[in-house]
């Protein structure tokens, strides 16, 4: 009656995880999308959101602080990668980062005022925790071997959001 791996999918999403295209759950969700949208809505009042590359749940109450920390993290990381002559889209999509490399980018950033005032970013331990725990828990980052991390496609939620800001600002300016 229920789709395959139903329990794992529901548990996963209810833990605030992103289910990304490279996981087998993604295909099951995609095949049963209508069912799951209704299931989460009727059972818990949660909204199941999706795009080409990931699924995630939205509750009425949003975890604004965590989301803000992650958005700031990606904004600064991408900004610094670009300044370093790297293609940040490719890097986030296909590269592994050693945690020390990430820490260095963030702590040496030109956005030091923001870094200093953010408790998830202001020292190496906080950044380790943000990436290694908070982001791994939500399947935004994946821990590889030797203190290295890669990012899942969920990172796009946070950088596309920044891009949309410019588009909406332009629209407002034109309106």
């Amino acid at each position: 009656m229920y789709p395959n791996k139903h329990k794992q999918i529901v548990t996963s999403l209810m833990e605030g995880r992103f289910i990304t295209i490279d996981e087998s759950y993604f295909d099951i969700l995609k095949e049963n999308q209508e069912f799951y949208i209704e299931f989460f809505n009727k059972s818990f009042g949660f909204e199941l959101r999706s795009n080409q590359e990931f699924y995630y749940l939205i509750s009425e109450e949003t975890n604004e602080n965590t989301s803000r920390d992650i958005s700031i993290f990606f904004s600064i990381l991408c900004y610094e990668l670009d300044k370093d002559g790297k293609n940040f889209m490719d890097e986030l999509g296909f590269s592994d980062f050693h945690i020390d490399e990430i820490i260095e980018y963030i702590l040496n950033s030109t956005w030091s005022d923001i870094v200093k005032s953010n408790k998830q970013l202001y020292d190496p331990d906080s950044i380790r925790k943000l990436v290694g725990s908070t982001m791994v828990k939500r399947n935004i980052a994946i821990k590889q071997s030797d203190d290295k991390y890669s990012f899942t496609k969920a990172y796009k939620l946070f950088i596309d959001f920044a891009r949309e800001l410019i588009k909406s600002e332009l629209n407002n300016a034109n309106a």
Partner: peptide, 24 residues
């Protein structure tokens, strides 16, 4: 994207002005 990051990070926007993406 970079303009977006810039807009988000400047003028305290990331703390006050702009709401980040919704998160479960």
């Amino acid at each position: 994207y970079l303009q977006g990051f810039h807009l988000y990070l400047t003028n305290g926007n990331c703390y006050k002005g702009i709401k980040p993406p919704e998160l479960f």
